[in-house]
């Protein structure tokens, strides 16, 4: 009986700590990141148990034709074409799967209005490998994102 109780306690403790540890580990993705082209900055945050990224900075924030803030004019859904790009969620639904990887998410490219399957791998605490792909991972492209240092507001 004692053994059963100990086993039960051990399993319960391991399960609980693994949940907490996984959560903490996954949260390392939270922060502000810059893709290799330097055209935008993306803030990753956690909503529920998933991770999302939104555009918070654009190198060229103004549309050269309309002289207004850039909007998502290439979105295939006409209802979404007037949404400002600043604040746009271009990374969606990422789940931490362990071993420094976040899966099951998508990445949206506002330049052509396409959404790709995506995996994120953390190479070190300041570097991400973001792989957008079509169907299978081999048919894709990897981009390197670097973490940016945001100073806390005084």
């Amino acid at each position: 009986m004692k053994n059963s109780l100990l086993t039960f306690l051990l399993v319960a403790f391991t399960t609980l700590t693994s949940f907490v540890y996984q959560d903490t580990e996954g949260d390392r993705l939270i922060g502000v990141w810059e893709p290799s082209n330097g055209r935008a900055r993306v803030k990753v945050e956690k909503i529920g148990s998933k991770y999302y990224g939104k555009i918070v900075w654009l190198k060229e924030p103004t549309d050269p034709v309309t002289k207004q803030a850039k909007i998502d004019k290439n979105n295939p859904d006409p209802a979404l074409q007037n949404i400002p790009l600043k604040g746009y969620r271009n990374l969606k639904d990422f789940v931490y799967s362990g071993k420094n990887e976040w899966n099951e998410g998508t990445i949206y490219d506002p330049l052509n209005g396409s959404t790709y399957s995506c995996t994120i791998k953390m190479k070190d605490k300041n570097t991400l490998e973001i792989r957008g792909y079509i169907g299978v991972s081999a048919l894709g492209r990897t981009d390197i994102w670097k973490r940016l240092e945001v100073k806390p507001k005084s």
Binding site: V32, E34, K43, K146
Partner: peptide, 13 residues
């Protein structure tokens, strides 16, 4: 969100 806080920031690394 105040997006201006992301204007002048550098790499962590």
């Amino acid at each position: 969100e105040d997006f201006s806080q992301y204007d002048n920031i550098g790499f962590s690394e």
